[in-house]
């Protein structure tokens, strides 16, 4: 994988206004690399939803992005409270977000479904009290 570019981002927790900075940076980098716009949009949306989730639920986290000539691989890791029932969390409309987050335009239970919808590969692992890891891949 000598052609791969690896980027790491720290997503600050509890600062909702800054959520999306990592996704914005990736979007600009992919655009400069001449990646097809449709793939860029898929990466941007799925990663943005992941960032928002990290801020809302997990006091931030880390995102590692690997860009290869064929795809973008995103690994989102947090040490938040974890998810007890992943199947339930994946249902559109299910949310545990606090009321104040809903007033900010999120927390409608669409984050994880959107992440799955926009990525070509999606997997999620979580342990209560330990954290959550989401892996997503978007092919060009």
């Amino acid at each position: 994988m000598s052609d791969a570019i690896v980027l790491k981002y720290d997503v600050p927790g509890d600062d909702f206004t800054r959520a999306g900075e990592a996704s914005s940076d990736i979007k600009q980098k992919l655009r400069k690399m001449g990646i097809p716009p449709e793939a860029i949009r898929k990466v941007a949306i799925s990663m943005y939803e992941g960032e928002i989730n990290m801020v809302i639920h997990a006091h931030g986290g880390q995102i590692t992005v690997e860009i290869t000539p064929e795809d973008v691989d995103m690994l989102l890791e947090d040490h938040g409270p974890g998810i007890a029932d992943i199947e339930q969390a994946m249902q559109a409309g299910f949310s545990t977000a606090p009321e104040d987050v809903r007033g900010l335009g999120f927390g409608a239970g669409m984050g994880l479904p959107n992440m799955k919808k926009y990525s070509d590969e999606f997997s999620i692992e979580s342990e209560v009290g330990v954290g959550t890891t989401v892996h997503m891949k978007v092919r060009f």
Binding site: G20, S24, K27, Y48, L104, G105
Partner: peptide
């Protein structure tokens, strides 16, 4: 700001 970010994405 998230309305702007959403528009950007």
């Amino acid at each position: 700001p998230q309305a702007i970010r959403t528009a950007e994405m």
